[in-house]
Design a protein around this nucleic acid. Structure first.
Lengths: 151, 151
DNA sequence: CCCATATCATTAGTACGCTAATTATAAGCC
DNA sequence: GGCTTATAATTAGCGTACTAATGATATGGG
């Protein structure tokens, strides 16, 4: 097979895998009234509570404006609370409600279970090598963007 | 490193790579008044003209309802035309306009160039291996969904 | 021929994602 | 202290994604 065909095939496989995983995860949590983005936010907040919105947005690689709406709905659903920071009156800290804590636990269970099932008999060394390759590719794309900005 | 950590790391790398590529590609085509989904549609239509909307939606793995809006805007931008099918009065066939053809060519150029730059010195066998693994994972996730539906 | 069923495109409504512009506050500098 | 600049959250507006419901047409069975 030609080099370019291999590359195209790889790109297609990458896109497909990524979307499949997201969709499957989404299906499993929507049954509990969640969505994939909310689940990601809950997961992160459970690990590191009381983040400012900007900080959470950075960690989830979302824009602040996107974060605002997401948190609006999570607040409506009783998953989180916005609390004013004492040090900086511009900042609002995000805290999980008890309900949010429960849902975060659920999210972790679903994720762990899915991970185990999907990677059941995947070789550890293969996984390690491919993770490295993916990281290389990601870095290469980031470089491209930088050059693109320079121009 | 523990098995579960490796798996998590792989998932993160996968998600990140996929998003980076999509974003980078998007940046390059928006300069020409396109978007990533429109570029994908143009690409597919250039390869296989006069598809019905449902067929195009299937190939791009989008819902028909999503396709409608996307094509609405592509029609407004003069990229495509909807033509009634002669065989089936429910069906509308999608044809590229001359402008659409031009843009499709541009899309292909951008994609080819990006592909070459990103994969410049990636080993062919590595790529093959990763593609296989990704396909395995995709299949595994698909199986999970089926079982989930059964339950 | 007719009716039940299926399929195509569409609309309505919701949820994300982005950029750009606004408002409130903070921080640095003369 | 007052002015410039930077940062936090928000709003507004767009584009894309989904599901559910609709209306028009096809299709197969009796």
């Amino acid at each position: 097979m030609k080099r370019s065909e291999l590359q195209s095939e790889f790109l297609e496989a990458l896109t497909k895998a990524s979307r499949k995983i997201r969709t499957a995860f989404n299906q499993r949590v929507t049954a509990h009234g969640l969505t994939y983005p909310r689940a990601r936010a809950l997961w992160r907040l459970a690990e590191k509570p009381d983040m400012a919105q900007a900080e959470l947005a950075f960690e989830l690689e979302l824009e602040q404006a996107t974060m605002v709406r997401l948190l609006d709905r999570m607040e409506e659903n009783g998953l989180i609370e916005r609390r004013p920071s004492l040090n900086d009156r511009r900042v609002k800290l995000i805290a999980l409600t008890p309900h949010g804590e429960e849902q975060a636990t659920l999210v972790r269970c679903v994720a762990d279970q899915m991970r185990q099932e999907v990677f059941a008999d995947i070789d550890k060394d293969d996984l390690r090598g491919l993770t490295l390759l993916l990281q290389t590719i990601t870095g290469r794309v980031a470089d491209l963007e930088d050059h693109h900005v320079d121009a």
